[in-house]
Simulated assay, not measured.
Amino acid sequence: MNAMNKTKVPIPMFLLIGIIAISFSSIFVRWSDAPASVIAMYRLLMTNVLMLPFLWNYRHEIARIRLKDWLRTAISGIALGLHFLFWMDSLRFTTVASSTAILTLEPICVLLGAFLLYGQRTSRAALIAMCVAIVGAVCIGWGDFQFSGNALKGDLLSLIGTLAVALHMLLGKGLREHMSAFVYSFFVFLFAGMVLAITNLFTGVSFFAYAPKEWGVFLLLAIVPTVFGHYVFNWLLKYMNASSVSMTVLGEPLGASLLAYFILGETITTVQLLAGCLLLVGVGMFLRSNEKQ
């Protein structure tokens, strides 16, 4: 954690920027009528295009990447691509609140994986704080959970996407120990985009037959939740535990639900607002306990 102290940057500010940015993801996806696999593909590949002019500056680092790390980066990218594919598709069948609330299972998966892979232990206070935050997040989407029909399908898709992003986060923690955020993010996004492109090719989905509005949505997804969201979280993996970064993502259900209320006209209840406050308290307690340094 010494590197964190040397950077002299306000980590909480970057956490807040990342949470707000990823909260817009659900809104942008709802604005698009394109298939989820196409939305996810262009979101990632457009991000690569935005990053491409700066790639030459990292040529020496890229030349030193070992085969083992290339394989781990590829798997991380594939997992991220599957996360986007399943989670975005879930929004076609269930509400924003329900879909994003299921994402609260991510820190549990990451915490378990971090213990098994890296021997990372968590204090009892942090575990209690995690439970508080997860209860709050689940309560935000509880009224929208349905256990049959399309809503159930959407919830299951969101669950699969959650498991995939947990794997991506765990691999990223190890790779970021000796790989810059830019290089890691560029190739993870590239591998994820390629997986989605292959999926679209084999399913016969059109690559180009979309209205100008759709291309605008693709670009918004690339800039806001990907660059200012996922890239920022990849950067933070160098200075924070993977479980802590995952916990901050729990702010997305609250942010997305508030944005859906103001922009999409979805309802939000007093219980959901109170649950949001409980979520924030839990996240704050967890970070304070888990990131003491």
Rank of each mutant, 00 (worst) to 15 (best):
H60Y: 14
L85I: 14
V96S: 03
L67K: 13
L52K: 14
A133D: 03
I128P: 03
L82G: 04
L50G: 03
G149L: 07
T73E: 06
M88P: 12
A40V: 08
L152A: 09
A40T: 08
W87T: 02
F86M: 12
N48R: 13
W87S: 12
T94G: 03
A101H: 00
R43W: 06
L116K: 08
S76R: 06
I78T: 00
R64I: 12
T100K: 04
G113R: 07
E61K: 05
S158W: 04
F147W: 13
P35A: 00
S76F: 02
I160D: 07
I62V: 15
I102L: 03
M88V: 07
L82C: 06
D144K: 06
Y58A: 06
F145D: 05
V138T: 10
L112Y: 09
S98V: 03
T95C: 07
A36W: 04
H60A: 14
S123R: 08
P107F: 14
L156E: 11
N48V: 09
G77H: 04
L152M: 15
F93E: 04
N150A: 15
M51T: 03
L50P: 12
L112D: 13
D144C: 00
V135R: 04
T95D: 03
V138M: 14
A40L: 14
F84Q: 12
A63Q: 12
Y42E: 05
A114P: 12
S76N: 07
L116V: 14
D33R: 15
F86W: 10
F115T: 13
L44R: 13
A40G: 10
I75S: 05
L103H: 06
L156K: 07
D89G: 07
D33W: 13
F84I: 10
S37L: 08
R124P: 12
I102G: 04
L116D: 06
Q120R: 12
A125C: 09
M51P: 11
S99L: 04
L152P: 06
D69R: 12
Y42V: 00
G113D: 04
L67E: 10
T95V: 02
I160T: 08
F93K: 02
A126S: 09
I128V: 15
L55R: 06
L67V: 13
Y42Q: 02
L91F: 01
L159N: 09
V138A: 15
V38R: 02
R64W: 11
G149W: 01
N48E: 07
F147A: 05
T47S: 09
V132D: 07
R64E: 14
A40K: 00
M41S: 13
A126I: 07
Y42N: 08
H60Q: 15
T47M: 07
A129G: 12
L157M: 14
I108L: 11
M88N: 08
G143R: 01
Y118D: 06
H60F: 13
S32D: 02
P107R: 12
